[in-house]
Amino acid sequence: MSLVDCPAVQAVTAAAPLLRVEHLTMRFGGLVAVNDLSLSAAAGQITAVIGPNGAGKTTLFNCLTGFYRPSAGQLWLQRDGQPIPLHRLHRHQFAARAGIARTFQNIRLFGQLSVLENVLVGLHRPLMRASLGCVAGMLRLKSFRRAYADGLMTAVQLLEEVDLLADAARPAEELSYGAQRRLEIARALATNPRLLCLDEPAAGLNPSEGKALASYLRALPTRRQLGILLIEHDMGLVMGISDQVIVLDHGQKIAEGTPAAVQQNPAVIKAYLGEAV
């Protein structure tokens, strides 16, 4: 056994990837949506998952964020030097225990809550802990008031980052489409994730909004020490900001590498454009 295989050494070296997916299979009845898929994503990087419609991208996401329980395979997330087995967690533990946050392809905000409250829901766990099962909150103890003010500050900063502070008091459903997408990212970041899963964040954005999103996402991993897993159909965005691209087709990985390498890959071209006649 070489030194590199030793788990303790792996944990301290950057070599241990943030996310490891091993032989993941997801079946729906007779349909195999994801078939024996293995991949990894690194901390501090943007990993894009692309592929034609029905390739299994969203299924992969739903397995990673706890919405589906995989039919087979293992999912590991590296956190504080400890690998966490995602396939054994309960749905609501993915955000808390493993530090995985996600956004949704069809935006899922809390429509009637204000923009600020949406972000505060992301801060639920620390705030709830500070309110001591509501006792400290009901009595408005100083410890809770301080924690609450801290939470508000965090939320305000997150909103400022995505340029939504001016809309803080408006109901989320009143925001424009692009603003709702940004709010969803801010809300996911409020849970202080290690891995942020973005499901088509640029869908429906106009070109200038898309550009702003690209530069925002590009800076995120280093600023917040997290990895980003990105599903996106906008190839301009994917190729522009990703460190690594994984291509899926029919539930299997057909290519992996830097954006430039993937673009030249014959298997990828075949999957997207079909066989040359």
Binding site: F94, A95, A96, R102, L113, V121, H124, A190, T191
Partner: peptide, 14 residues
């Protein structure tokens, strides 16, 4: 209120 508005999103936030 978050759970009322969107259960799925609420779960995703832990």
């Amino acid at each position: 209120e978050a759970v009322r508005e969107d259960e799925v999103a609420a779960v995703s936030l832990g």
